[in-house]
């Protein structure tokens, strides 16, 4: 079995994995980081989004071996787990989630967006969140939350 070494939420991880192991399976079943959700498992919904080397990707559509040497961030590594990040706080304030299933992926995509574009327009946000499907909110409050988070983060 291939041996892989990567960083997950700033912790070094080394594992022997079957080549067919998906990154999402490594994260959830091996590392027990179940904040990464599997929605469709067909690369459509974006619930399984994590950041690989800072870029959002669908972890159900990437092999664990492809993440060998990479720096992976899951929702458990977003913020310190004690204090809400500006993005988490804005989602709370603007009621940007209902069932919450899509939220981890939504947060990691929006987090990367705000890093690349600290002052996004509503159109920018809608374009960048196209890969994350939410069946509850109708997106309006999510978009408002990202706009608000951007404003807070710009200070």
């Amino acid at each position: 079995m291939p041996k892989i070494t990567l960083t997950v939420n700033n912790e070094p991880v080394t594992r022997d994995v079957e080549a067919r192991t998906l990154l999402s399976e490594l994260i959830r079943e091996e590392l027990k980081l179940t904040g990464t959700h599997i929605g469709c498992d067909t690369s459509q919904c974006g619930a399984c989004t994590v950041q690989v080397n800072g870029q959002p990707v669908k972890s159900c559509s990437m092999l664990a071996v492809q993440a060998n040497g990479a720096d992976v961030l899951t929702i458990e590594g977003h913020g310190d787990g004690e204090t809400l990040t500006p993005l988490q706080n804005a989602l709370h304030e603007h009621h940007g989630l209902q069932c919450g299933f899509c939220t981890p992926g939504m947060v990691l995509t929006a987090d990367a967006l705000l890093r690349d574009n600290p002052d996004p327009s509503e159109e920018d946000i809608r374009h960048e969140l196209e890969g994350n499907i939410c069946r509850c909110t109708g997106y309006q409050n999510i978009v408002e939350a990202v706009l608000a988070a951007a404003k807070t983060m710009r200070g």
């Binding site: 690989v52 959002p56 990707v57 669908k58 559509s61 967006l113 960048e128 196209e130 890969g131």
Partner: peptide, 9 residues
């Protein structure tokens, strides 16, 4: 093409 996650890979 696709969405940001797809474009990143």
């Amino acid at each position: 093409i696709g969405d940001p996650q797809v474009r990143n890979r």
